[in-house]
């Protein structure tokens, strides 16, 4: 019987069935290859080129040298001379990103909490607004704040015309602003300053903070807060003992994600930060595309930025797990 069955099958069918089987097995692997080539190879290239060498008057050549890394950490002339210029730039990257992400999350938390208490349709309307501002290009945002903060228009002009500048001078607060670098002898000034840089950067990620906090806060059970209130807790106590502990992990996770995102900010820093306080992202640009034309060194800084981000994410993840286990 089985022999007859075997003969009955038309000859053409078997290979067809075999190829179909192979197709369904091969397709995921083919796809894996495609995604690998598109998503991962660019990062490998950055890593490989970071060990390359610049050729004076030409481009660069493949090599395997740690010179670029040495230059980043201690300078080219080490051990005779040590410079921490590039480490300093990385430090500014961290400084701006830490402060801006913390400000964004802390101010977005109450907003998101209030948002989740609204009707569903009202929430959708707010989300449209938040998402539109989230997707608005960095260049437009910087342009807007640049107009608002520049010396001839915007806030400084407003300060002057409303007499606020004069009032600050009379009360002596003007000197404090000057000490902070937020005023010249005649009027307040916000460009260039850390204040403007951090303001714009936290504005940049604020909608992201809302969107990232939204799921966790909207799943929070309101009956816990109500129970606490019935037992006589005031708003502050409810916030401190019920809400904050239950959103501690998403709060921390959001800050971390925004921090990593902000490490690579380019436009806001070039426009608003003091040139002496420019970040690694700006230096990467200058080496890869800008005046310096030292692609391997740019790639080295990109690798170091990526590794720093990775270390922060890993540390954060470990801290999260440790906190969750306790």
């Amino acid at each position: 019987m089985s022999v007859a069955d075997g003969i009955d099958v038309p000859l053409g069918d078997r290979p067809a069935a075999a190829t179909r089987l192979n197709w369904s097995k091969l397709l995921p692997w083919g796809f894996a290859g495609l995604v690998f080539a598109l998503c991962l190879v660019p990062f490998f290239l950055v890593l490989a080129i970071s060990f390359g060498r610049k050729v004076e008057g030409a481009a660069w050549v493949w090599d395997f040298t740690f010179e670029n890394y040495q230059r980043f950490f201690v300078g080219t002339l080490w051990p005779d001379e040590v410079t921490f210029l590039y480490i300093g730039q990385l430090g500014y990257s961290f400084w701006y990103a830490v402060i801006a992400s913390c400000i964004a999350v802390l101010t977005a938390l109450p907003f998101t909490l209030l948002l989740t208490r609204l009707r569903r349709s009202a929430q959708a309307a707010w989300l449209v607004f938040i998402l539109s501002s989230l997707s608005l290009s960095e260049v437009f945002i910087v342009m807007g704040w640049d107009i608002l903060l520049s010396n001839n228009s915007g806030l400084p002009a407003l300060f002057k015309s409303t007499g606020l500048t004069q009032w600050l001078k009379d009360t002596g607060h003007f000197q404090t602003l000057r000490d902070w670098g937020l005023a010249n002898p005649r009027n307040v000034k916000f460009k260039t300053s850390d204040f403007a840089t951090i303001l714009t950067m936290s504005y940049l990620v604020w909608p992201y903070a809302v969107i990232l906090l939204y799921p966790a806060l909207s799943r929070m059970d309101p009956s816990h807060s109500e129970a606490a209130r019935t037992m006589g807790a005031n708003n502050w106590q409810v916030l401190r003992t019920v809400i904050l502990p239950s959103v501690r992990l998403p709060l921390f996770g959001t800050t971390l994600l925004l921090f990593v995102f902000l490490l690579g900010t380019y436009v806001a820093v070039t426009v608003f930060a003091d040139p002496a306080k420019h970040t690694t992202a700006v230096a990467i640009y200058q080496n890869v595309r800008g005046a310096n034309l030292n692609a391997p060194f740019g790639a080295t800084m990109a690798v170091i930025l990526l590794v720093s981000a990775g270390i922060c994410l890993t540390l954060g993840h470990m801290l999260n797990r440790w906190a969750a286990a306790r």
Binding site: C39, P42, L45, G264, Y266, A309
Partner: peptide, 21 residues
């Protein structure tokens, strides 16, 4: 995971990588 990677890292790094690529 691989497909989400480019979106998760600072975009300037992926941009530099794609420039070389």
């Amino acid at each position: 995971g691989l497909g989400s990677l480019p979106f998760a890292v600072p975009p300037i790094v992926f941009g530099v990588g794609l420039g070389f690529y």
